[in-house]
Design a protein around this nucleic acid. Sequence first.
DNA 1: TTGACACGTAAGCACTAGCTTACGTATTAT
DNA 2: ATAATACGTAAGCTAGTGCTTACGTGTCAA
Lengths: 130, 130
Amino acid sequence: MATAIQRRAARSGEGVYYAIGDPTRRRLLDALGRGPRHVNDLARPFAMSRPAISQHLRILRDAGLVSMRRAGRERHYRLRAARLRQVYDWVAHYEKFWTRGLKALGDYLDRQTAQESVSKNPKVNERRKR
Amino acid sequence: MATAIQRRAARSGEGVYYAIGDPTRRRLLDALGRGPRHVNDLARPFAMSRPAISQHLRILRDAGLVSMRRAGRERHYRLRAARLRQVYDWVAHYEKFWTRGLKALGDYLDRQTAQESVSKNPKVNERRKR
DNA sequence: TTGACACGTAAGCACTAGCTTACGTATTAT
DNA sequence: ATAATACGTAAGCTAGTGCTTACGTGTCAA
């Protein structure tokens, strides 16, 4: 019933985290961080069709991360970084974990036991290997 | 060919952004921010099966955001916030856009023209509505 | 006015995400 | 020993993602 685009738009709210989850969209934001750009400008560095970029831009718009202004037949996109603030605020409250040395000791203490379990489960990987 | 889990693991690298893209996983990290927890503890507040939580934890482990230590029949998860630093660094360099007032003026100047285009395209929505 | 340009959207595709249930394994309790 | 606990993984499902090509609309250029 709903189109793909509507469903994507419906994710707004959660939208910012979703939007920055994609590397292409992060690169778009980075590009816009250096000033407003129009679509062809934005699309040029990507090994991807222009419509694909349009779709990414749509998602960024829905997330409120960029705004668009029509200028003749071009559309100028501009960064709206304010929405990134919620992400900043969220990660910032973890900052203490890498700046404060307090925690670091505890971290170190079980690093040797925990080490082998960070992202590897040899038994399983072995079995899956074939 | 590859299992779902291997495919997920393969996203590592990109992994941190992907991992924090899911609200459940962010809540898990928030919970772990208040100290190590074992799985049932972590799963309790969620309206979701425990295996689902295990899968989320697996993704967090693959992203290097948490570590796990076996303690008898329980598994203790601990936050590894260091990996969040790359996210922090990325968003932090947008901080100037909402703290510096310089840009704010320019933003304001085309806010009235841009406003209508932030996340709504009435013409299209109209058409899709039926 | 006709054509080229700069887009955005639609449709359709292969793949991925996130969930569930079913099940297996290691550890503790009885 | 047997049963219960605390997990992790597998399989399978639905819905969402991200891409492509095809096409439509509005604007500028000749």
